[in-house]
Write a protein that binds this DNA or RNA. Structure first.
Lengths: 333, 333
DNA sequence: TTGAAAGCGATACCAC
DNA sequence: GTGGTATCGCTTTCAA
């Protein structure tokens, strides 16, 4: 079913059908009606590929994330989606599962689709991709990598600061024996959290103990990492998890071992996903405002959407400590 | 950056570049090498719109779901994605947020993209859309609506049976005072669960009490619905939730009122999302196998992918009761 | 083994 | 107001 067939049926030219479809130019009411009629009768739907090929532009924004199963990424995606729809843009998402090969192919896919803008919110970032994208003409938003300027906008979350707030709080509660649960994406932003934790703990208290464990970024991964962590002697008095999802997973393992939270072990998350309020006990965590990030992504990618475009700039997001019920004074040794 | 520029640079025709790109036909090694070189030098990425326009087909599958925030839908999406990627298909997803207007525009979008197949896994279904899609030529999978045959495949979950298993179990535990938490999508499949619960309860025990409450399909919606339910006198002894996500939300409210689960109130979910094992107490629920559904979607939409295509058929999914720790004997009145 | 050229289905500019 | 037509970037015969 093509424009031409509609044109034929309505006894007009394709140009006129196109005008009707796009509400551009002036079309006499009677002809408009004929065209509309033909469109519905033929159940015609314009071919969007032809449209973007002919039109040149795209009104589609691409978003690439590491793991949609983690609400952190999903929340960002949805925030961008809300803005996109409000401005008549479409959104296509790709999920890399933390695999950098998958990231590469997702990037190719998005470029192939000639997206109007691309947000790459992943932690398995790779220098070649950053370079390639930086050289392209598409508006890009990177997360925690790259250099802002030109078509590149950067969002940077000050993880170090967030972790420090958390650690200071735990140290003040008397904790000296820490566990850190990370995940297997041993790349930049994640590993930064681990190092930040290590640094912050030793800065505050050089003799403190820190053990590490890591597994997949999922509820089960959290449990597994907890198992790994608890396999070595007495449990730490506080467990810092790289994110909320894994923390909820870890809590389950603690419950099964009848370790009380927070009396026996304090535990913290990161991100402040909705679930953090609904698990039990409610999770002490660090808030990262996903909606702010989502808005920022959109305004950077579609500068004409706002007077205050952030294209080419850097947004620094400062996390806030959210104290809930999963943390308390360290148990006595 | 177009095929033509690559052709020019490699001193060949566009046809040859196309052959190299698609690995079709025979190309002399030396020319292939020249083309490849030109491609990388120009950092060329084929325009996928032009490709699918010229090629006619699409290798893209569309999936429309009601609410990606609910892991039930996300799991199906991911299952389809896994199969798609394994067979070189791409996947585009649309999220309707239970709004039937949004559903209509997502359907238009997918048709406009000329997807190779479309799965519509939503509960806000609308007869016009079912009809329109049924008349189209695209392979379609519907969830709980429509009539199988031709290009239409249907997946039907036997909710009634699932609810019955749950109700029988609760009745056997002595429950006679029920609450049912639903969500605001007052449409077919969801309302079916509510009616099924009502019917099953009264079939087993005509004098049993049932109260209803509904809110949004989210953790918070679950809490809100629980508040609504508990606002009227003594709490029911068992609360049946339309899905796990809302059940987890409801449990939070029960905890805040210091109602013990399951000693004071039993609570059940539906779907068996991962979270059901990780909340506390672990949730008694009814399993709906999302991966089976996902596979089915893929094999129906891309029949050539398997010898045992399910195109045009109906798959009936029978849910299984999963007893965990959130249910127990009814408290004495 | 390679090239020339006819579409694919829209958009948009230029006439009338 | 409306129609003709070049064009977008690729695939795909048909010839050479």
């Amino acid at each position: 079913m093509s424009l031409e067939q509609v044109a034929k049926r309505a006894r007009v030219s394709t140009a006129t059908v196109s005008r009707v479809l796009n509400g551009l130019g002036v079309v006499k009411n009677s002809t408009r009606a004929r065209v509309m009629k033909a469109i519905t009768e033929l159940n015609y739907h314009p071919n969007l590929h032809a449209r973007s090929l002919a039109g040149g532009r795209s009104r589609t924004i691409g978003v690439i994330v590491s793991n949609l199963d983690n609400p952190f990424f999903l929340d960002i995606y949805r925030a961008v989606e809300t803005d996109c729809h409000a401005s008549g843009y479409e959104l296509v998402v790709a999920n890399t599962l933390y695999r950098s090969e998958q990231l590469a192919s997702s990037v190719r896919l998005m470029i192939g689709r000639r997206v109007a803008g691309l947000a790459v919110i992943v932690s398995e970032m790779n220098d070649d991709i950053v370079r390639e994208l930086s050289e392209s003409a598409i508006p890009i938003v990177f997360y925690d990598v790259g250099t802002p300027g030109g078509n590149i906008t950067k969002i940077r979350v000050n993880y170090r600061r967030g972790i420090e707030k958390l650690v200071d709080y735990l140290i003040a509660l008397g904790h000296r024996d820490f566990g850190f649960i990370g995940h297997h994406s041993v790349l930049a932003p994640i590993d930064e959290r681990r190092r930040a934790a290590f640094d912050a703990i030793h800065a505050a208290c050089p003799e403190a103990k820190v053990r590490f464990a890591a597994d997949a970024d999922s509820l089960e991964g959290g449990s597994q990492a907890a198992i790994e962590l608890l396999s070595s002697g007495a449990p730490p008095t506080a467990i810092i998890c790289v994110n909320d999802l894994m923390a909820v997973g870890a809590m389950k393992e603690l419950r099964e071992r009848e370790l009380r939270i927070p009396q026996d072990v304090s535990i913290t998350g990161f991100d402040n996903i909705k679930l953090a309020e609904f698990c039990c006990p409610a999770l002490t965590t660090v808030n990262i405002p996903r909606d702010t990030i989502g808005h920022h992504v959109f305004t950077s990618l579609v500068p004409e959407s706002t007077p205050t475009s952030t294209q080419g700039k850097e947004l620094i997001v400062t996390p806030e400590l959210m104290v809930r019920d999963s943390t308390g004074p360290a148990r006595r040794a």
